[in-house]
């Protein structure tokens, strides 16, 4: 099946490994990801706080470009996914506002007719491809790997999407199918602090610390996430958290496609696992079943 691929800004630079692993995983499952030509930033969480029509108009530009291709849009970054689908939903609910946004788009010769559909790769994996096919395509078993599945905020909220908002299970089911063990993880939808890491560092450090502490407490080998900002806060800032709270955490934080990629037989380099900053990578105990 073909999908339109919307990488988003952070998957172009700091989190290229996420983009690479998404592409690898989908190719392995015989799905074609075609990058949306000339996409622009979705606006993330910062833009909404500045101008209203503007934030919707720039986000709608992407949807207008995407709807021409009549394919579902895949956005791996949780913030992009939420912003794009929120724009889509609100424009459908507010016809006057939709008209206003279209007037803006007209300046660039574009028009958005509300036909695009925004999906997250996790949604596509579970609901389009299905766990049976994923199981079939597994080359390695993830047996022995203890995972703390961290969904964060933007993937499952605000509206009910493809998973529950309080106790999401899609990622748990995915890794269970691959043979991994999902640990009890009450912090799976708690906020990591997001953009506060740059503005109110103390608050974000506290929130991120609690998320890591819960994973450590429940004896997880790694945290697995879908969001580049969460990955950044939980992993790149781990040193700072250790310094701040006098702790000794060394918890790897993977993107879910990196771990799935391991099950599909790709090596660490192909999936960008070597670009992680934490030392304690514990994926070496994996056993090969097919070859």
């Amino acid at each position: 099946m073909d999908y339109t691929y919307y990488p988003g800004c952070s998957l172009e630079s700091a989190h290229k490994s996420y983009s690479d692993s998404v592409k690898k995983v989908f190719k392995h499952l015989d799905c074609n990801l075609i990058e949306l030509e000339d996409w622009n930033c979705c606006g993330a969480t910062a833009y909404m706080g500045v101008k209203e029509t503007l934030s919707f108009a720039i986000s709608a530009r992407n949807l207008a470009l995407a709807e021409k291709h009549k394919r579902d849009v895949i956005a791996p970054c949780s913030a992009c996914y939420t912003v794009l689908s929120k724009t889509n939903r609100y424009l459908k609910q507010l016809p006057d506002f939709h008209q206003k946004v279209n007037e803006c788009l007209k300046e660039a010769g574009l028009q958005y007719n509300l036909t695009a559909s925004v999906r997250h790769p996790l949604d596509v994996l579970i609901n389009d491809i299905g766990l049976d096919k994923i199981k079939e395509k597994c080359v390695r078993s993830l047996k022995g790997l203890k995972i703390a599945n961290y969904y964060g905020c933007q993937l499952v909220r605000p509206e009910r999407g493809f998973d529950d908002r309080e106790v999401p299970m899609t990622m748990d089911n995915l890794f269970e199918a691959c043979g991994a063990e999902n640990v009890y993880y009450p912090f799976k939808v708690k906020c990591c602090g997001g953009m506060l890491m740059t503005t109110y560092e103390d608050i974000a450090l506290k929130l991120s610390k609690e998320i890591i502490a819960s994973a450590v407490e429940n004896k997880a080998d790694c945290i697995v996430t879908t969001c580049p900002l969460c990955q950044m806060n939980l992993e790149a800032y781990q040193d700072l958290i250790n310094k701040h709270y006098n702790t000794n955490y060394d918890m790897p934080v993977f993107f879910f496609t990196q771990v799935l990629g391991m099950a599909f037989g790709f090596d660490e380099k192909e999936l960008g696992i070597d670009t992680l900053l934490t030392k304690g990578i514990k994926l070496n105990g994996l056993t090969t079943i097919h070859n």
Partner: peptide, 19 residues
Amino acid sequence: KIKGLEGFKKIIKKAELMD
């Protein structure tokens, strides 16, 4: 940088006027 930057800036200008 995006290729359609000119159009993108036009969208922003129009939207700012509306806001």
